[in-house]
């Protein structure tokens, strides 16, 4: 049995050109985009959660000279 697609709320023009609020099932193109969006969002969230602390990232990006200077300051 075919699963119903998610519903969207949008405005569409009626026969007189007036915008009307409609709630309808996604069409094929919208459904394809939605599945892609959900996948992207999940991957982005995982990447965000796995991202190290900004200070760690900054330390990793420092040059040898900058690290030497940091060591000197901390000594």
């Amino acid at each position: 049995m075919k699963q119903p697609r998610p519903m969207i709320s949008t405005y569409e023009q009626d026969e007189n050109g007036v915008e009307r609020l409609v709630r309808r099932e996604m069409n094929a193109a919208e459904f394809k985009q939605w599945k892609s969006d959900v996948k992207d969002s999940g991957e982005r969230r995982k990447a965000d959660e796995a991202r190290p602390h900004p200070l760690i990232e900054q330390l990793r990006s420092m040059s040898d000279e900058e690290i030497a200077e940091l060591k000197r300051l901390l000594a």
């Binding site: 998610p6 519903m7 969207i8 709320s9 949008t10 405005y11 915008e19 609020l21 709630r23 996604m26 939605w34």
Partner: peptide, 18 residues
């Protein structure tokens, strides 16, 4: 305003009018 407009839930996306 979604409330004034009468948007019905659940919906996977909401688009404003023009």
């Amino acid at each position: 305003d979604t409330q004034d407009a009468g948007v019905q839930f659940p919906v996977a996306s909401i688009t404003t009018p023009t």
